[in-house]
Nucleic acid binder design. Structure first.
Lengths: 146, 146
DNA sequence: AATATAAATGCAAATACTTGCATTATTGAT
DNA sequence: ATCAATAATGCAAGTATTTGCATTTATATT
């Protein structure tokens, strides 16, 4: 879907400076093509150039905030990142065992009584579901049955 | 509403041992009568007896898991706890400035396509809204206008 | 009252992530 | 190509919270 040139255009459009580290983060995520931890991204970049962990975190933040990346949080508070291929606001359902991510094309904000929201501005919505996917349930059944 | 004796009965019903520290945590929260950080609870208990921070966290966890306490998370990942006066599952709207908490008597899980949930078991719902309450908006306007 | 057992605690070390600040690199304008 | 403005980076120290393990305590039973 996306390639590095496209992502660089997106950075330009958002007035983000195109640094070697940023390019490396995006290249790493493109290669992986899947949800990845900050630690794994750090390892990837570090083998290619000098980089500090805080720089990785700061970049993952800005790239996520500008919609270039997408972030989900595991229940143990470890975050996963991937290139954002989806237009518009959405949420996720995450497997508690294998961390598989299912996209939920729904935002609960729309269902909240407007009277309540009336008194608040800049309302942000944190919403995620966590469960065990079918495959992990079955694996677990087998393990326990053994 | 609740007093310590009532809370002790709740602990007994849930087979939680009644330790000095647990009583102290609950007494502190009753005195405060409002959302409180783990740090503040730790300070309160520490002035009364020897206690380690990890014990505070472990107790806040178990007391929350058993429904005796209620927890909300600030956007910067600091948690607030209070005695749970509410029956049943619910969520919160939290002011990003003063941390005021509004109860949302709604769970978005009900609105999710059952076909999606069918493939997952033990689904838990993380849902919170964050915004600026009217008072904080006005204060900010004044500060900026000055 | 003595005791067995399971749960709670303290301690030390680890976790993921954040922040302040001085230095450096990218960018658009000359 | 040079340069000024601004954003990005590295470093060091900080944050809240968690975890493993050995010791202690609360509780139900005798």
């Amino acid at each position: 879907m996306s390639n590095l040139a496209e992502l660089e255009k997106m950075m330009a459009k958002r007035a983000l400076k195109q640094t070697r580290i940023r390019r490396s983060i995006l290249r790493g995520l493109l290669e992986k093509g899947d949800w990845t931890t900050a630690r794994d991204i750090y390892e990837y970049v570090k083998t290619r150039q000098k980089v500090d962990f805080s720089t990785i975190y700061r970049n993952l933040d800005t790239l996520t905030a500008t919609g270039i990346l997408c972030r989900v949080e595991r229940q143990d508070a470890v975050s996963y990142y991937t290139i954002n291929h989806h237009e518009g606001h959405h949420h996720h359902l995450i497997c508690k065992s294998c961390q598989k991510v299912v996209l939920l094309d729904y935002c609960p904000l729309q269902a909240i009584d407007p009277q309540i929201l009336e008194n608040f501005s800049n309302v942000e919505c944190k919403f995620d579901l966590y469960g065990f996917c079918r495959e992990c349930q079955e694996q677990n059944r087998n393990t326990n049955a053994k």
